[in-house]
Design a protein around this nucleic acid. Structure first.
Length: 127
RNA sequence: UCAGUUAUGCAGACAAUCGCAUCGCAAGAUGAGGAAAGUCCGAGCAUCUAGAGAACAUGGUGCAGGCUAACGGCCUGUGGGGGCGACCCUAAGGAUAGUGCAACAGAAAUAAACCGCCAAAUUUUUGGUAAGGAUGGAAAGGUGGUGUAAGAGACCACCGAAAAGCUGGAGACAGCUUUUGCUCUGUAAACCCCACCUGAUGCAAGGAGAGAGGCAUUUGCGCGUUCUCUCGCGCCUCUUUAGCCGCUUGAGUUUGCAGGCAACUGCAAAACUAGAUAGAUGAUUGUCAAAUACAGAACUCGGCUUACAGCAUAACUGAUUGU
RNA sequence: GCGAGCGUGGCGGAAUGGCAGACGCGCUUGUUUAAGGGGCAAGUGGGAAACCGUGUGGGUUCGACUCCCACCGCUCGCA
């Protein structure tokens, strides 16, 4: 099993990222979702013993610098708190106003969002 | 000291922990901008089956000379405009090559008599008159005089305009002289004329590789159109979502010397390492007076335009006070 | 990244360089009706006024929605 996974993920990088448009559309269409004021989390179960996450930030959020900064901060928050769970795929969608928040506000909102997800799926995980 | 003009520079640094991208066996090394932006111009490069010349078409540029690979850029000047000044702004060829347009107002808009003035007749007419009024963005050069019935470049002085000549300058143009009639409204960011330039499409180009279909045996095809010349080739259409190449060292940068008023050029030396593809720089803490503006490479250069916190430096101008 | 187009009342959408807002929809008032709907008539950019108004700022012109330049916003195409 371990071997099979490593084979399947041979081309994947170590950062557990979703990158293909097809994967995004699939999760938007088939997945469940949870929301806070500025974010929506789409998620779906996966058959692999792994997780992957994608970030979506529309052009309405601002110019390139603002969008890049927001995405970096989201990636940092997800990484340091070890939020995602294996056997799931996620899309973290930033809604209007998200780029105006500072790092601490972002962190509390994203944590909140994942807690909602844990509760729904009955996953035991403490932050 | 106050007010101002011009030019230039910086665009956080260092340390610690965790994390990202490229290269590398590894250790490790390197890792966004002055505008990377807008995509407004000019090129390289690639493809359209190759190239040269002429004419036309299309689009563009527009004071002169120079710089440049090139430009609609830059420099030095000329004319015009603004400022006491340092200095700044300027799409600035041609309106006697032709055509078009100029609403409303006004008597009349490129051609004149509405009011007024003068004369004659005489009770509402005729003739003269562009000085004055009124309209307009624009009304037949302007001001003052002579003159006259009243007037008028009809004549005179000064200013202005046009043409010709001479002088200076590389030239744009400037200065001077003479003559002319003051005959000649504005608009070319209206068509246009003149001079010069100009094939199209953009790395989502395209290439390698892979695949499918159609036409056909000497006609056909080959960069907007036509013609001339030299040539070439079986032709046409479509797919390729993943990956590979294109993908970074260049008309480049810095320093020194030399030439040039300058833009810039020549020579010598030195250093050079972003190349991603859901697209790499973040989080936390400490120190510096503070770290905060505009903002993120996407084939590559040269410009232009626009955005911009906090400063720093140099030269110059005007005013005031003191010596 | 590259390319193309658009911007005028509340909405759609006209307007040779010459009174901005034709025309349609909507809205308001009056009238008709027992009432509503419908019909008919009038009005409808902002402002007390001066005046300002065609995305914004300049320019050309006597005069600009229209021509030129720069910027802003929106839409579409190219995988």
């Amino acid at each position: 099993m371990e071997e099979k996974n490593s084979l399947l993920n041979a081309k994947e990088r170590s950062d557990h990222r979703l990158r293909k448009d097809r994967q995004f559309s699939y999760i938007y269409k088939k997945g469940k979702r949870k929301s806070t004021d500025n974010f929506t989390l789409y998620y779906i179960e996966s058959k692999f013993n792994n997780y992957r996450i994608g970030y979506s930030i529309s052009k309405k959020q601002g110019k390139a610098v603002k969008r890049n900064l927001l995405k970096r901060r989201l990636k940092e928050i997800v990484r340091t708190n070890n939020l995602p769970v294996k056997k799931f795929n996620f899309v973290l969608f930033a809604r209007d106003g998200a780029s105006e928040l500072d790092f601490k506000q972002l962190e509390s909102q994203v944590k909140n969002l994942f807690q909602k997800f844990y509760k729904e799926e009955k996953i035991e995980k403490s932050l």
